[in-house]
Amino acid sequence: MTTIPRAPLLLGLAGLIPFVWGALTVLIPDLGIWTSQTLGGRFVGPYVMLFYGAVILSFMSGALWGFATRLKGAQAATGYGLAVLPALWAFFMTGGGPTGSGVSLMMGFIGILGLDWLFWYHGAAPEWWMALRLPLTAVVVTCLGIGVFF
């Protein structure tokens, strides 16, 4: 793996903000109350993490779709099919309450690492892709876990 370019690294880290903020509002109830009163309830605790998590899984489908364009023949067809799975997962597996949705998103983010690796292994993702995705996923799953289990 090579060094992660600055722009993807910074944007990836910025993309963690809603997850980290949601986890903080769970762990610090006064921050949750302030956020609810100031920004609104959808920016508190599991709500912000669940909504944003579904958006990001859908976004990752788009990223994987882009990687599939670098494949040929049957590999490309399989890649396109696999690329839509995170968005479908987010659509079908969330909406059943905060606990079930949170667990489903955790599983979705862990599962997408397998797809990330597959595209990376076949040379469709950049060399640095897994070096970026592993720590970002660890933070996302940890934050979602806080929302589910605390």
Rank of each mutant, 00 (worst) to 15 (best):
A23H: 13
A23V: 09
L24P: 14
V26G: 05
V26F: 11
I28S: 11
I28T: 14
I28N: 13
P29Q: 13
L31D: 13
L31K: 14
W34F: 14
T35W: 04
S36Y: 03
S36E: 09
L39G: 04
G41Q: 09
R42M: 05
R42Q: 06
V44E: 01
V44I: 01
P46Y: 02
P46R: 03
M49D: 04
F51A: 14
Y52K: 04
G53E: 07
G53R: 02
G53A: 04
L57P: 11
L57S: 09
F59G: 08
M60V: 15
A63K: 09
L64K: 00
G66H: 05
G66P: 01
F67I: 02
A68T: 06
A68F: 09
A68C: 06
T69G: 02
L71H: 13
L71T: 07
K72Y: 11
G73E: 15
A74T: 05
A76W: 01
L82F: 06
A83Y: 09
A87N: 05
L88S: 05
A90G: 05
A90H: 06
F91C: 04
F92C: 02
F92Q: 02
M93Y: 09
T94P: 12
G95I: 14
G97I: 10
S101Y: 12
V103Y: 12
S104I: 06
L105P: 15
L105H: 15
M106K: 13
M107T: 14
M107R: 11
G108R: 10
G108S: 12
I110V: 15
G114N: 11
L115E: 08
L115G: 09
D116M: 13
W117T: 07
L118K: 10
Y121N: 11
H122A: 00
A124E: 06
A124K: 07
A125R: 03
P126C: 08
W128M: 01
W128I: 03
M130D: 04
A131H: 07
R133T: 00
R133G: 00
R133D: 01
